[in-house]
Amino acid sequence: MTEQLVTPPERETADAGTSGPVRIPVERTWWQRHGRTATVWGVRLLLIAVLLTAWEMTAGSLFDITFTSKPSDIAGRLGEWSGDGTLWQHSWVTIQEIVYGFLLGAAAGALAGFVLASLQLAYRVLDPFMMALYSIPKVALAPLFIVWFGIGMHMKVLLAAATVFFLVFLNTAAGVREVDRGLIDAVRLMGGNRRDIALKVVLPSSMTGVLTGLKVAIPYALIGAVIGELVASNQGLGYLINDAAAQFDTAGVFATLVVLSVIAGVLNVLVGLIGRRVNRWKPIEAQG
């Protein structure tokens, strides 16, 4: 019967504001605003330049280029491969494996984590089994996966998915289990049913866990896919490394590694972007 409540005297917004921090605009120069970031990036670039130069200078004298190659050769190999399409063809295969493996593993892991952690008893029963499966080195599964799925892309996708699954599963489950009991009770008091609790409290609250899982899992999707290719394949960046190494082409091996790290970097940036969108409500210090 709030309709009958007496409205208190009109109060200024500033009144409520006095009990909180006050925001004022601040004039800052470009350097004050971005100086720190600019410095960090400057030093990063400098570091790369110094390392590459040192490598280039010492190649041939201090080190045998048969084993360590040198930056100019690596750049040359990258140019050559990019010209004849080798690079794009193999990269595309690996990227597909990573993306499909990641999506498959992440979706299954998040779903399983969400459902299982919501069912107290089921979680307690299955927890040790999940931990045992999680602890198996996924490389050890590769031979089995070859028997089951052949040496095509399926096997790499599933190997990457298997790795991603457990990381996302465990983090999601932890997120769901750490949901504040008080928030659940609040929804119950509003007359919310189990569905309301799951959608309006557990899901948003466990997002932090899910995102941590996704973030941690990204490099593992890459690892899963490349290891699958190294074990048995006829295409992909892992195959390229194996092939180059077999011909004692170290420049080719390094060139492939460069491509792999670029792919990993791009993937990390993508996850960072998602995290920032979802965690807007968190204190700025806690946003990753």
Partner: peptide, 18 residues
């Protein structure tokens, strides 16, 4: 069980942080 006709203001804040 909880009744929507009864409001309960708890000791700790239970606003949804998101």
């Amino acid at each position: 069980g909880p009744d929507i006709d009864i409001g309960y203001l708890t000791q700790s804040d239970t606003l949804m942080p998101w």
